[in-house]
C-alpha cells in the first residue's frame, strides 16, 4: 500500500492505494465517481478520459499512485453551481450524445483540446478527438458541438 493525495474535482483525498490500482478504478471504486466509464481498457477508446493537471489522459493507462499530488477533473467536476460547463451545454444543444457511454471522455477530451488552443478548425477538432471512439458513430454532432464552443466554422 502506498499513501497518496489526489485532488479530484477540487477536493483533496488521502488514500492508501495498491500500486497496481489503475486511476480509473480509484475514481470509480474508491471515490464513487462512476461518471468516468471503462470502454476498451486498452487505451484505445478514450471513454475513461479525465483531466490530469488540466490535460486529457486515459485513466485506464495511469496508475493511481502516479497521480499522487496531482489535480484530476472528472465529468462530475465540470459543472459549477448547477450550470453546465459550456462543452456540456453544447453537447446538449447539438444532440452530441446518443447512448452516452463515450460522452464523459468525449467531453473531457474536448475541454482539453479547446483549452490547449488546438481546436482551430473542423479538421483539427476531428484529428484532436481521434483518441475517443463513439460506438453510436455520432461524431458529426460531437464535432459540431466542439466547433460551437471553440467558435470555429
Amino acid at each position: 500500500m502506498r499513501h497518496v493525495a489526489l485532488t479530484v474535482n477540487g477536493e483533496r483525498h488521502e488514500l492508501d492505494l495498491e500500486p497496481r490500482a489503475l486511476l480509473v478504478y480509484v475514481l470509480r471504486e474508491r471515490l464513487g465517481l462512476v461518471g468516468t466509464t471503462v470502454g476498451c481498457d486498452t487505451s484505445a477508446c478514450g471513454a475513461c478520459t479525465v483531466l490530469v493537471n488540466g490535460e486529457a489522459v486515459k485513466s485506464c493507462t495511469m496508475l493511481g499512485v502516479q497521480a499522487d499530488e496531482m489535480e484530476i477533473t472528472t465529468i462530475e467536476g465540470l459543472a459549477s453551481n448547477g450550470d453546465l460547463h459550456p462543452v456540456q451545454q453544447a453537447f446538449h444543444d447539438h444532440h452530441a450524445l446518443q447512448c452516452g457511454f463515450c460522452t464523459p471522455g468525449m467531453v473531457l477530451a474536448s475541454v482539453s483540446l479547446i483549452e490547449s488552443g488546438e481546436a482551430t478548425s473542423e479538421n483539427a477538432i476531428r484529428i484532436g478527438l481521434e483518441g475517443n471512439l463513439c460506438r453510436c458513430t455520432g461524431y458529426h454532432n460531437i464535432v459540431k458541438a466542439v466547433q460551437a464552443v471553440a467558435g470555429v466554422s
Binding site: 487505451s43 486529457a56 486515459k58 477530451a109 482539453s112 483540446l113
Partner: peptide, 9 residues
Amino acid sequence: IGDPQVRHR
C-alpha cells in the same frame, strides 16, 4: 504518435 491523451503522458 497515438492521440492527444497518449502524447500527454
